[in-house]
Design a protein around this nucleic acid. Structure first.
Lengths: 188, 188
DNA sequence: ATCATTTTGTGACGATCGTCACATGATATG
DNA sequence: CATATCATGTGACGATCGTCACAAAATGAT
């Protein structure tokens, strides 16, 4: 819980009373490795703050799993599209290690946002950061080659390279498994 | 103004009083073709609801302009990253036609959000939709070939194909101008 | 420890796409 | 109307990447 409070503070001020109100809506939830935080077809009704472990979001493209994002400690895992529109999620979110999360329930969160403008402000900030992350990620596919994309991730998000398997990383970068393997062997 | 009100209504309820409060913070602003809504290096302090015309967002990659998104009627043009963090924008937003916008000023918007939870809710919904749009766009670069990406845009966002020039569209799709030209000629 | 299963590495080959060059067509401006 | 400027089409060629096939290594289960 403390890590979440620190994270929220980094976004904006949060008074003790606001924090207490918010706390009542939170639940600690754990997921064993390979289990699902969200399955495709379900509506996403939660934000999961990751306190330990990491997850991946993927969708199925003609029988192949394509990874779209990874969520590590201090990230918020969710499918914004489904969360925002109440439509079934096209993505599945799966725990890649044993994962500990703090779950925000959408309905309860909405209620406390109505009560407390400070919490509402925090909510908006969170969303902005999630959206900004997507924006950045989309940009790397334009005018970067496979190798440049790898190096970009290596520079800015080295933890992804360190913790994610080659197979999962390759579809995230939009390249074949074999190509990623060759990029790696080339640079040693 | 009426088109904005209809758009906001499609996101969530908005009472007459909320709308009046919000209205006082809005400004109609027009941009002539080729002028800028936002220049890279500036901090983005506005959301622009596009009521007429369209814009493009691009960044400079080694002297080349790379288009990252297009904003048409009823879209909200902004750089969320800069808007959220107050950091200088890496992108430029330019009017591709004579453009009429309704400008939300960030500071004033924040003030009315504190006053009126209904407006705050709308703000969050807007952000969610913008973020969801980014999320979708990022996904098309994974496991889609150049041609598949073109066909995807053709199916889901035909207005982009119709109104955006081949040169601008190609960098948006992450392919060479010549390749896009060949994709088009192939399919007739 | 052994075997099964999954993940990663590597070679060969072909398809796709980017680059360079230049031609053609469209649009704008005086 | 003439000309300059910009956008688009097209050919040739090479680099990159994906695919298929299989080997090697790592991981997990009994």
């Amino acid at each position: 819980m403390e890590s979440l409070r620190l994270y929220l503070r980094s976004l904006s001020e949060i008074s003790d009373t606001s924090w207490e109100i918010l706390s009542t809506t939170l639940h600690m939830v754990t997921f064993a490795r390979t289990t699902y935080l969200l399955k495709s077809g379900q509506v996403c009704n939660s934000l999961f703050f990751i306190s330990k472990g990491y997850c991946r979001a993927f969708y199925d493209k003609d029988g192949q799993e394509v990874n779209t994002s990874f969520f590590f400690e201090k990230d918020i895992a969710t499918n914004l599209n489904s969360y925002a529109t109440d439509q079934p999620s096209a993505y599945t979110i799966q725990a890649c290690e044993d994962v500990t999360t703090i779950q925000f329930d959408k309905k309860k969160l909405l209620e406390v946002c109505e009560q407390d403008p400070q919490i509402a402000l925090l909510g908006r900030k969170c969303l902005q950061y999630i959206a900004a992350k997507e924006e950045k990620h989309a940009a790397i596919y334009k005018l970067m080659t496979a190798q440049e994309r790898y190096e970009y991730i290596e520079d800015l998000y080295p933890h992804i390279i360190q913790r994610v398997s080659l197979t999962h990383l390759s579809s995230y970068l939009g390249i074949a498994r074999e190509t990623l393997s060759r990029i790696r062997s080339r640079r040693m």
